[in-house]
Structure formats: structure tokens, C-alpha cells
Design a protein around this nucleic acid. Structure first.
Length: 885
RNA sequence: GGACGUGUAGCUCAGCGGGAGAGCACCUCGUUGACAUCGAGGGGGUCACAGGUUCAAUCCCUGUCACGUCCACCA
């Protein structure tokens, strides 16, 4: 016999270890099995499981368990991402806390060794947390983006793209993070609204004939100004074009130029041009051949290109100083306070500087074309579909992707420089050396590029690099392209788009056929979770408190098409209760001798109740299967919840009791076997969502019956014959349920004391109804707490209700409240009247009759007839009642 | 500025052309009987607003308002 309650704390680790040890997570060896593969969005190796991971990985696990049970060669390939900046940050912080040498003091090689040490010690955290989630990943295939095979793939991709002219080195403005002293991509820049100001500065004309006023939000950049631009159409300034102003503080004469970029509507209509520190100005500078004077170093401090008193000052100190000097010079015309968007580094949180450096770029525009086309042609579909608009929007306006990072942790760029700066891009140092020797005619010392690649460069190769590409491995042949990618919308650009570009370019195929975008998990108030707001819900805490299955079911059930999920603990509690319900239903089965019968075939049952639950089971299985195929996780969860709780527990179990406690041994034996069968189906169908409790029940229910053949997780997903659908059985049991519900409802409404057993009569019943009444009388009596249930006219002092073609009447003379009953009848009749009127209006409309579909018209005729019949019965009862009173 | 999304019961959401639904919360009743982590019953909604298409609109179209997210830009 089962324990009173389920104890997830002891069961979960035990079962997970058993699954993993048995090899059940690996795809089947069966060569005929259809492959079904997904790759995990690799969490940062520094990460720990947050609620977003919990959702994302639960959905993947539901999917992979489902497909595995369907007999596919299901591979869920796990792994982690080396996460360049994030990991480097963690290790640097640890070094500092331990009072160790800084990264720069210890040097590159020593530092990278330290990071590997850290990875060996602490890098497994998130992977073990995924195990607690029940994730059935094939750990034997676990990958890390810096693994030798994956690194080789990165080098090959870089070299090939370079040879194809799709990777190039260029000197231009990048988003520079002065905190980490590295370039970052556009995507790693976050716009934040901050308080700032427009400072309006007057630049005196060199010939002393006046001044021109410009405005800026970054006064320090004026130290690098090389022009002032005005619109060629701006009458106010036309006469000044070609003249020079003398740049205050600096003393440099700079020209006034005409350029469309200057908008006469904005500010004074004149704009200072700092090509080395502003993206727009850089373009203007190019057009006019202006010098680009970079006045900052990599740390955001003013450099030697500025006047001596500024050198070494932090950019924000310099800003104040510039303003102060303008004020002292009498050239500060206005300070206009504004709130404006300022770019910040997403990791460092500091203000990003446009900075002029040499960096490596990917020609994303070229790579994007096939990636756009693949989605247009439906070779890859988003679910929900709308996300393709986001994808297209970005892909069609894509900018060159800056991929070099001035970090030490990552894939070092496979480019070597000769003494004259000649670049050799090769997969290995030896190959580069060979090329250099050939080029220079003698062995020459080369220097490798110091930079590493953007982490997303290697992530972009993930679906094929993890399967062994560029080698034509068995795994690559069998599992690529992968089937589905489950991920969050926040990384559609960072990751999905890049995988599409790289996958198509290097394998000629889409990396996945479907991308399922999961929602963002918010707190119960709909706010983003953040440590600062202290509203973070830790999935591990939830697992401890409610059990893993409860959390998984909650996330699955709430994972609709909406963009976010507001998670509340109350909801989790509800689904924990659902698990308890299933547990107790199983206890009921055990107490009533419902054990699995070897060789039992549900196709052979003869009890109507058996046929009914068989049909309901088949309906549910079909619903769940369809929903999971379509990634409609919430629908699958909803169908399971309703079936287990409302159909199986609330009705089937109740309806089976009289038979289980009855004298008919054959019927009892059948229902016992059938009940055990249905319970098994519940466990199977629930397993993908609630793997632990179902596996545990699967094992425990074997105790009183034949032994189970292996794990539930390795059991086949059901496919029932069409013959399980059973309209007659459905109609019959639905009638019984309807009758019992009516009786219960009337008892409650009429305030009949719980202990009172009442007589029920049924008048006007046809042969079917009489038959059903006869066959299920015991059930009806016990569940309706009735004294008797017989055909016959309603006695005086009874309350009527409509059941199909018949009128039921509950004799409650001693409890009846005439006024309340009259009110009830009037209300019900009014309800029918409203229906009749609405349907009549339709049926009386010639346009409706002419244009509506025939079945709709028929349906309405049926409705009308039903409503009129029901109304007539109740009206008759009302008349009788009025006769009494 | 551009794009996307959301407004349905007190709350969270499903439904998306032909009778307004679920869970939670609420109210009433009920524990020696699988389960009080429970059972039975019940109340509660001009489906944001305004137009349009249609025989028929919560559902499709247009507009308005409110809220949210993303992208771009700012002298």
C-alpha cells in the first residue's frame, strides 16, 4: 500500500539517479527509429538555475520525454557556454576577493589557467541543477563551447568566412565598454534613460566676426571636434560655410561645413562634429575628409590628443571641467536639463563610448539573406508565428557584427600578423607560419591577434558543432538538422538569428525546423524579477517546497501563447494538490484491488462504465498528443488536469464504487482491471510533465500485480484503436451524470438536509432513458442520495427538472419552500424564453435561412425544440405549484 | 519615430465567426467511507471604446484610448 502522501524530497534524487544510470536518457539504438533532436540553449557556465531556465528546460523535457515515449530516437543534447565576459568577471572578482594578483599582473596564460581551474571546480553547478529539474538530457554527449572539437569548428568557420570575404578587419567606431576595455556588439548595448543636459556652447568665428552656437550632451567630446556642420539650405548660416571657428580651450581652427546631417529644426541648426566619438559624426567626417581625433583611451580617460590639463582625467571629470571652462570663458550660452537615452554596457552597466579602433567584423547582411529566405519559405517556423516579424525586422536591417573582444577568456582569433602588419588567417599557427614563410620567402616571426571572439560566435555554431561538425559524424548525419529549438524571445537576435546564418552557410540546411519561443517569467505582480527588487522566485526553493512535478506542471500549464507568465505560488500549490489527488486516486485503486491484469485488453470490456472511461481516455490521449505536437503545452496540461481530476477522480471513481462494492463478481473483476488500466494511462500521459510522481506510482502500483517491464519513462505512448470512441456509452453515462448533477443541484438549492433520502420520479421518459434508469439505478440512488428512482408522474410537492425528453421530479414535500421553488421555476423558464426568442429571431430571418450553413440552421431548430419542450415541462410544473398555493 | 503585443468574472488567463469558459478567490452545505493538499452546490462578465464587414461579431477590418515589450534616434 502507498504511503499517505508523496515525498518528492526522497523520491526525486533516487529516481533521477536510477534513470541516468540506466542509460535511459540516450537515444535508442534502434536504426529504424525516427530521429528527434533538440539542443539545449547552453546556459552560461557561471550560471545558476533561475526560473526562466526552469521554464525553458521543463518545456524541452516535456517535449523530449513525449517524443522518446513515441518511439523516436530522441536526443536532447546538453552543454554550457563559456560566456566570455561573465566568466572572466567572476574569476577576476574571486581573485580580488582572495587578495590575489590581478588578471593583468598574472598575465594571460596564468589567468586563463585560473579560469579553467574555476570551471573544473564550479562550472558544474547549473548542470546539476538541471538534473534536479528532471531534465532527461543525454549527459554522455554534454558539450562546452571551448571543447577542442567545438573550438576547431570555430576556427574553421572563421577562416572560411575570412577567405570568402565575409569576415574582415576594419577601423571604425565601435561600442566601447571602458569598464571591461573591450568592444561589444550593438546587441550588448542597453539604452537607459538618465538625467542629462544639453549644454549650448558658443564657438567664436576665427575672424572675430561672431560666433556659432552648438549643443551637446557630452561636452568632453568637443576636445575632439574637427568641424561644425550646418545645413546647406539653412539661410542663417549660408554665409558662414567655408569659414572657420576657433575651438575654445583647444585653440584648433575647425571649418564650418555644409552637410545634410545638420537639421535646421534641431537646436541652433548647427552641430559640432566629432568623428572619433559619434557614429553620425563619423559618417560626416568621412564625407568631408575630416580628421578623426580620438581624445580618450581605453579606460575612458582623456588622452594626449587633448590639452595638457585634461590628460588622464576621467571622461566625466573632463565633462565638468569643459563646462566650467566654457562658463569662465563666457561661452556657455544655456544649460537645458533633459532626460535622455544613454547607451550602457549590458554586463558592466557603465556608459558606452563610441571608440575608434581596429576590430573584426562579420558581413552579417550577406549571411542574413539565406536566413531570411529560409523563414519566408517556411523551412523554419516560429511558434508562435508572430515572432518571425521580429526576426525579419532585425535581419532585414542588420548591421556588420563586431566579433572581436579584448578579453582573454574565449576563442582566440586565428589571425597572425607579420612584422609589416600582413595578416595570415589560418586554422592553426603552423598553417599561418607556412603561409608567412611562403609570403616572405623565409621563416618569419608572427604575432597572434590578442583578441577573442564574441561568445555568440561559437554559440551560433552550437546545433552542428555539438554534433561533431566539420567531421561527418554519425551523430551529425542522424540528428542534424535538429527538430525544435525552445528558447526565450530575448535571444532571437543574439542566438537564433546567428544560428540560422551560420547553420545555413556551413551546412546548407536550417539548424532547426521550428523555434518555440517561451514566455518570460514575471513575478505575480507582473514585474521582471531582479535581485534589486528582491522579487526573484528561485526554482530550487519551489522544488524543495512543492516538489519538482508541481513546479513543472505549473510552468507547463501557464505556458500559453502569451509573452509572459505571472507566476504565483498559489498556482503552484494548486498543482501540488493535483499531484496529491493523483496519489490518492492510486491509493483508492490499491484499496479496491484495482491492480494491473496481465494480458488485459481494454477492447474486450462489456460494462458501459468501462466503455465510457475507455472513450474518455482515448479522447484525452488524442488531445494531449495533438497539443504536444503543436507545442501547445498549456492545452496538454489542461486536458490532463481535467481528465485526471474531473473525469477520472470525480466521476469514474465514484461511478465505479457500486460495482467495486457490489455482488457481480464478473463486473467487479472487469472494473478492477479497467481502473488499473486507466490509471496506467494517466501515468503514461502525465509522465512528460510530471516525471517523478508518475514514475514512482508506476513502480509502486506494480507491487500488487505483475512486474513492470522497465521504467515508465521508457514506456510507449498510447495509440488506441478508433473503436475506443463510443458514442452510445458516452450518451448513456453522460445521461447518468446529468441526472445526478440535477438531483444534487436541486437538493442544494432547496436546502434539503444532507441525511434526507428522497424519492425521484421520471415522467415522459422514452425507452432509452428508462433503460438507463434501470441499469444504473444503484448508482443514481447512491450518488444522488435518493430513496428510490422510478418511472412515474410527479407527486404533489415535488420539484421538477428536465433531463433529455423526460421530466424528473424530486419529492421534497417536507422541505419545500413554495416561494423559493416558484422563483426558481420562473427564473428557469425565463432563461428558456430568452433562448427561444433569440433562436426564433434567427429562424425568422430569411437572410439567415438563405445564407447560413445548413447544419447551423438545423442546430438552431434543434435548440428551439429543446428549449420549448423544457419550457413546457417547467411551465406545467409551475401551474401545478400555483394550484397548490 | 518604427515594430510587435495585450485589454474577457475580484485575480490569472483560455476561447477567436453561429448558445460567454477554466483555475484561484468568494458564498452555502458536507469529514468514521482514496483524498479537508478534499467533496457537493452556487453567485459573479454592455468580452476596453467607437465605427465598419456579415444573415450572424468577444472573435474579422478600421480608428480611438490604456498598458506592456523590442528596435532605432536625439544637437
Amino acid at each position: 500500500m502507498l504511503e499517505k502522501t508523496f515525498d518528492p524530497k526522497t523520491v526525486e534524487p533516487r529516481l533521477y539517479a536510477a534513470w541516468e544510470a540506466s542509460g535511459a536518457f540516450a537515444p535508442t539504438d534502434n536504426p529504424d527509429a525516427e530521429p528527434f533532436s533538440i539542443v539545449i540553449p547552453p546556459p552560461n557556465v557561471t550560471g545558476s538555475l533561475h526560473i526562466g531556465h526552469a521554464l525553458n528546460n521543463t518545456l524541452q523535457d516535456v517535449l523530449i520525454r513525449f517524443e522518446r515515449m513515441r518511439g523516436k530516437a530522441a536526443l536532447w543534447l546538453p552543454g554550457t557556454d563559456h560566456a566570455g565576459i561573465a566568466t572572466q568577471m567572476v574569476v577576476e572578482r574571486q581573485l580580488a576577493e582572495a587578495g590575489n594578483m590581478s588578471r593583468r599582473d598574472m598575465g594571460r596564460d596564468a589567468f586563463v589557467d585560473k579560469v579553467w581551474e574555476w570551471k573544473a571546480e564550479s562550472g558544474g553547478t547549473i548542470v546539476n541543477q538541471l538534473r534536479r529539474l528532471g531534465a532527461s538530457c543525454d549527459w554522455s554527449r554534454e558539450r562546452f563551447t571551448l571543447d577542442p572539437v567545438l573550438s576547431a569548428a570555430v576556427r574553421k568557420v572563421f577562416v572560411q568566412l575570412h577567405k570568402q570575404g565575409l569576415i574582415y578587419r576594419d577601423k571604425r567606431l565601435v561600442n566601447w565598454d571602458p569598464h571591461f576595455q573591450t568592444a561589444i556588439s550593438d546587441l550588448e548595448v542597453e539604452q537607459k534613460e538618465v538625467d542629462g543636459a544639453y549644454w549650448h556652447f558658443a564657438y567664436p568665428l576665427e575672424d572675430g566676426s561672431g560666433e556659432i552656437v552648438v549643443a551637446t550632451t557630452r561636452p568632453e567630446t568637443m576636445l575632439g571636434d574637427t568641424a561644425v556642420a550646418v545645413s546647406p539650405d539653412d539661410e542663417r548660416y549660408r554665409h558662414l560655410i567655408g569659414k572657420c571657428v576657433r575651438l575654445p580651450i583647444v585653440g584648433r581652427p575647425i571649418p564650418i561645413i555644409a552637410d545634410e546631417y545638420a537639421d535646421p529644426e534641431k537646436g541652433s541648426g548647427a552641430v559640432k562634429i566629432t568623428p572619433a566619438h559619434d557614429f553620425n559624426d563619423f559618417q560626416v567626417g568621412k564625407r568631408h575628409n575630416l580628421p578623426s581625433i580620438s581624445i580618450m583611451d581605453a579606460y575612458g580617460k582623456i588622452n594626449e590628443n587633448a590639452p595638457a590639463e585634461y590628460r588622464g582625467l576621467d571622461r566625466f571629470v573632463a565633462r565638468k571641467k569643459v563646462v566650467q571652462q566654457f562658463e569662465e570663458l563666457g561661452l556657455l550660452r544655456e544649460i537645458e536639463k533633459v532626460k535622455h537615452q544613454v547607451p550602457h554596457g549590458d554586463r558592466s552597466g557603465v556608459v558606452i563610448e563610441p571608440y575608434l579602433t581596429d576590430q573584426w567584423y562579420v558581413d552579417a547582411e550577406t549571411l542574413a539573406k539565406p536566413a531570411i529566405k529560409a523563414v519566408e519559405e517556411g523551412k523554419m517556423v516560429f511558434s508562435p508565428k508572430n515572432w518571425e516579424k521580429t526576426y525579419f525586422e532585425w535581419m532585414r536591417n542588420i548591421q556588420p557584427w563586431c566579433i572581436s573582444r579584448q578579453l582573454w577568456w574565449g576563442h582566440r582569433i586565428p589571425a597572425w600578423y607579420g612584422p609589416d602588419g600582413k595578416i595570415f588567417v589560418e586554422e592553426t599557427e603552423a598553417a599561418a607560419q607556412a603561409k608567412a614563410t611562403e609570403h616572405y620567402g623565409q621563416a618569419t616571426v608572427l604575432r597572434q591577434d590578442e583578441d577573442v571572439l564574441d561568445t555568440w560566435f561559437s554559440s551560433g555554431l552550437w546545433p552542428f558543432s555539438t554534433l561533431g561538425w566539420p567531421e561527418a559524424t554519425e551523430d551529425l548525419k542522424r540528428f542534424y538538422p535538429t527538430h525544435t529549438l525552445v528558447t526565450g524571445f530575448d535571444i532571437i537576435f543574439f542566438w537564433v538569428a546567428r544560428m540560422m546564418m551560420m547553420g545555413l552557410h556551413f551546412t546548407g540546411e536550417v539548424p532547426f525546423h521550428r523555434v518555440v519561443i517561451n514566455a518570460l517569467v514575471l513575478d505575480e505582480k507582473g514585474q521582471k524579477m531582479s535581485k534589486a527588487k528582491r522579487n526573484v522566485i528561485d526554482p530550487l526553493v519551489l522544488i524543495d517546497k512543492y516538489g519538482c512535478d508541481a513546479m513543472r506542471f505549473t510552468l507547463t500549464a501557464m505556458s500559453g501563447q502569451a509573452r509572459n507568465i505571472k507566476l504565483s505560488e498559489q498556482r503552484i500549490e494548486g498543482y501540488r494538490n493535483f499531484g496529491t489527488k493523483l496519489w490518492n486516486a492510486t491509493r483508492f485503486c490499491q484499496m479496491n484491488g484495482c491492480y494491473r491484469v496481465e494480458g488485459f485488453d481494454p477492447a474486450t470490456v462489456s460494462e458501459t462504465l468501462s466503455k465510457w472511461i475507455r472513450a474518455e481516455t482515448a479522447k484525452t490521449a488524442a488531445e494531449v498528443t495533438t497539443a504536444l505536437e503543436a507545442a501547445a503545452y498549456d492545452e496538454a496540461a489542461g486536458a490532463l488536469y481535467r481528465f485526471v481530476w474531473n473525469v477520472f477522480c470525480d466521476w469514474y471513481v465514484e461511478l465505479s464504487k457500486p460495482i467495486l462494492n457490489g455482488e457481480d463478481a464478473a463486473a467487479k473483476a472487469e472494473v478492477q482491471a479497467m481502473t488499473a488500466w486507466v490509471l496506467d494511462q494517466c501515468l503514461i500521459l502525465l509522465h512528460p510533465v510530471m516525471p517523478f510522481i508518475t514514475e514512482e506510482l508506476w513502480a509502486q502500483t506494480a507491487e500488487g500485480g505483475p512486474a513492470r517491464d522497465g521504467f515508465l519513462m521508457s514506456t510507449s505512448w498510447p495509440a488506441y484503436p478508433d473503436s475506443f470512441a463510443d458514442a452510445a456509452a458516452e450518451a448513456e453515462i453522460d445521461w447518468v451524470i446529468g441526472l445526478i448533477t440535477e438531483v444534487r443541484s436541486l437538493r442544494a438549492e432547496m436546502n434539503v438536509p444532507p441525511g434526507a433520502r428522497l424519492p425521484l420520479t421520471l415522467s415522459g421518459a422514452g425507452p432509452d432513458s428508462l433503460d438507463r434508469l434501470g441499469r444504473h439505478r444503484d448508482l443514481i440512488l447512491s450518488l444522488g442520495r435518493l430513496q428510490s428512482a422510478q418511472p412515474g408522474e410527479a407527486p404533489a410537492g415535488s420539484v421538477p427538472f428536465v433531463i433529455g425528453e423526460a421530466t424528473g421530479a424530486l419529492a421534497i414535500a417536507e422541505f419545500i419552500d413554495l416561494a423559493a421553488e416558484k422563483t426558481r421555476l420562473v427564473k428557469e423558464i425565463a432563461g428558456h424564453d430568452a433562448d427561444i426568442e433569440r433562436v426564433n429571431r434567427k429562424l425568422g430571418n430569411p437572410d439567415f435561412l438563405a445564407k447560413a450553413k445548413e447544419e447551423v440552421i438545423e442546430e438552431n431548430r434543434g435548440k428551439l425544440a429543446d428549449a420549448e419542450a423544457a419550457k413546457a415541462k417547467l411551465a406545467a410544473a409551475l401551474t401545478r405549484l400555483e394550484g397548490v398555493s
